[in-house]
Simulated assay, not measured.
Amino acid sequence: MVTAADPIERARTLLRLRRPADAERELRGLLAQEPQHTVGHALLSLALIEQRRADEAVQEAQESVRLAPDQWLPHYAAAQVYNRARRPDDAVTAVRAALELSPEYAPAWEVLARAHLSKAEWQPMLDAALRGLSIEPEDCDLVSLVSLAYLNLGDPGQARAAAAHAVRIDPESPTAHFVYGRAELRFGDPRRAAESFREVLRLDPGFGAARDWLVRALKERNPVYRRLSRLRGRFPQGWRLIFLLPVIPPVIAVFVILALLHWVAWVAEAWSMLRLARGRATRLLFEGAEARVAVACLGLVAAGAVLLGLGIGLGQEALGVAGASVMALVTPVQEAAHTGSPRGRAILYGWAGLLGVAVVVSVLVAEPGVALLALYASIATVWLATPVRGRLTPAV
């Protein structure tokens, strides 16, 4: 005879396998027979929040708590739902209720730490994560949260040590490598940070934030960019300084040189990625979109060089400038490919497409000025992509 425990265990397994829709079907069937099943409502709330149906998830979590306010599981599930629904205050209240009933459950301390992370409360976050580690000393996610807390508290030694420890505990954890990359980027070597973010994307190609941080790491390898970034950090509204460019011509030269250096870095990145994608030992790590983008970028460089050479040889200025503009398209294409938000990626790919159309039009109408503007806009995308990426990428 099928017992009520069977759909519960099946639902738990399906949730672990990241199949929330299947888990929801199991739980709906159970609740149709037993509408007052506390665990059923709690697990259903988790299945719904995994499908980004926040309002329904909150209702199920609240129903579970109403049915069994003296059990820790409903409060714990509700805390997870509130966290995912971006209601950190409610998450803190719920998880503290769970901890009052079961203070030795380490995952509840992790949820509390994540709630404080959402509120940018670094010391309470650290305290909660360390309390969880006192129960489960080898929990990779808790160690990663400790590292993030130390990172934001400005403790480089502890942040890097905790991040390295998280990677040792679980070398296959995207979160551990992500936090290690963050620590290296803040206090260590941007090159090692870039390697860590690449590893995150290898382990979890859908980890959108890692793409954005990879861009930062690649740019931070440029010493000029590092200095300008630190200067910009001192002026929260520093973007307004762009209006001073016409009255300070030497600054224009600095920005142009920096944009060109970024273009060179993006070309080098495409070459390195293609080598990895074609290498016998690493080809399986970089199949798919990364390899296609690398090929496309190197193709743009080759095609642009051919057009530039023809323009010079034939004495056609429009064709030559168009060739340089085609090569410059590497920057918007790479900026788009390394954007974590699907919407932001679509916007930047659309921008690259418009610039490509402008280059084609410049050749058809023999107007080098149009191609020259497209050239400037392409290399300037290294700056234009930053607000797009910042506004559309969800916080981690």
Rank of each mutant, 00 (worst) to 15 (best):
P69E: 08
P74K: 09
L17T: 03
Y180C: 04
R10Y: 08
A374W: 04
G233L: 04
E26C: 11
D155A: 15
D204Q: 15
G188E: 15
Q71A: 12
A113I: 07
V256G: 11
V330C: 00
C297A: 09
H116G: 02
P103K: 07
R192F: 06
L145G: 05
M273G: 03
G313P: 11
V361G: 10
M327A: 14
W122N: 10
L373S: 04
P103L: 11
Q334F: 12
F187Y: 15
V146I: 10
S229A: 13
P20V: 02
R389T: 03
H177K: 11
L203K: 05
E138L: 13
R114Y: 06
A281W: 05
V224L: 11
L300G: 02
R280A: 13
L228F: 10
L231E: 02
P69Q: 05
R280M: 06
R114E: 14
H338F: 12
V247M: 01
D170L: 04
V92L: 06
S229G: 10
L112D: 00
S378M: 12
V295K: 13
A149K: 04
R343H: 12
W122F: 06
E26A: 15
A54R: 05
R18W: 13
R12L: 03
I248T: 12
C140T: 09
D127T: 09
D90T: 00
I312Y: 14
F207T: 01
A352N: 00
A47G: 00
L130Q: 11
A385M: 02
